[in-house]
Design a protein around this nucleic acid. Structure first.
Lengths: 148, 148
DNA sequence: TGTCATTAGTGGAAAAAAGTGGTTTTTTGT
DNA sequence: ACAAAAAACCACTTTTTTCCACTAATGACA
C-alpha cells in the first residue's frame, strides 16, 4: 500500500499535486474520492474515502460524555472533509485544514500503509530529529525485542 | 547472506552501482525489487522487497496513538520506497532519502545479513571511531560474557 | 609479462512523463 | 440577473526515466 515520503509544493490556491504513483491506487480504490482530516499529533490525515468510513463509525461509537473520546470525535470527525482529485491529479486543501497543520508552501506527504499523513515541512523535520535522537531504552514495551 | 563493506560513488543524478556480487542474490531473491528506508541511527536501510514486508507488518501493528511507536512508524514506513535496479545494476536514491542520511558523493554499503545499511562516508567513519573507543564496561547487558 | 577480451562502472542525450500556473467556464449565492 | 468564488481545462516548463555509448578495470591466455 502507501509508503514513502514526498516533498510537495502547494500553489497559491492551496492545490497540491499527488505523486503519480499513488494516483492510480486512489482512483481504483475510491474513484479519486479522498477524506482529509486533522490528526492529534499536528499533521493531516488523508484516506481513500472508502477506507475512512469504517474508521469514522468506530470513532463515533465511543461515549460522547467522556471528555477524551469526545475531544477525539470533534477533532477527527469535525475536521474531516470530502475532497476529490482534480483532472490534473491535484487536491485542494482548505484554509482551515492548512491552518490546523501550519502548512504553507511545502509539505511532506508520508505513506502509512492504509493512508497518508501530511506534515508541514518544518514540523516534519522537527519530528524526525526527535525520533533519531531517541535511544532504545526509552522505547515502549511493545517494542521490546523488536529488531530490524 | 550479505556481508562486507563497500565504498560506493553516487553520481549527479543520485544513482549508485550495487556491487556485482550482491546483484545476483537480489535478482534471484526479489527480481531486483528493493525497499530502501530510513534508520533511526541516521543511515539508510536496504532490504530485498520480500524480506521487508513482514517487518513492515510488525511495525504497523503498533499503536498509532502512542508517540514513540508512531514516530517509529513514520520513520520506517514513511520513508520506505520501492526501487528496482536499473539495467546497469544501479539503484536511484531519492532526494528525500539522501537528505535524511546526509549522503552526497560517497557512501559506505555495509552488509548486515538479511539487509544492508548505507552510510554517508563521514558518518560511517565517525561511527567506527566511536565503536573502537568503547570499552567493555559500557556494553549492554546482553553482551555480558560474550567473546570473540 | 604483455596483450586481448570480457565485464563492470560512468556519463550523458533523447524521449516521456509529471508539475505548474493561468485562463475560461461553471456554479452558487444574493 | 449579477457578482464572486470555485472548479475545469489547457498549454508550457521542468523533471524524470530510459537507453546507449564510452572508459576503466579485471582476468585469461599466450
Amino acid at each position: 500500500m502507501f509508503r514513502g515520503a514526498n516533498l510537495l509544493n502547494i500553489d497559491a490556491k492551496g492545490r497540491m499535486a499527488m505523486p503519480t504513483k499513488h494516483r492510480e491506487v486512489l482512483l481504483v480504490q475510491s474513484s479519486g474520492d479522498i477524506v482529509i482530516t486533522a490528526h492529534p499529533h499536528g499533521c493531516l490525515l488523508i484516506y481513500p474515502q472508502m477506507a475512512w468510513e469504517p474508521i469514522q463509525s468506530k470513532i463515533m461509537a465511543f461515549s460522547s460524555f467522556d471528555k477524551k473520546s469526545s475531544a477525539l470525535q470533534r477533532l477527527l470527525v469535525g475536521y474531516a472533509e470530502d475532497i476529490a482529485l482534480d483532472t490534473a491529479g491535484r487536491l485542494l486543501l482548505s484554509q482551515v485544514l492548512r491552518e490546523f497543520a501550519s502548512i504553507d508552501k511545502q509539505a511532506m506527504l508520508v505513506g502509512q500503509g492504509s493512508h497518508f499523513e501530511l506534515w508541514d515541512r518544518e514540523a516534519w523535520n522537527q519530528q524526525m530529529q526527535n525520533a533519531t535522537q531517541q535511544d532504545a531504552s526509552s522505547m515502549p514495551i511493545e517494542l521490546e525485542g523488536f529488531s530490524l
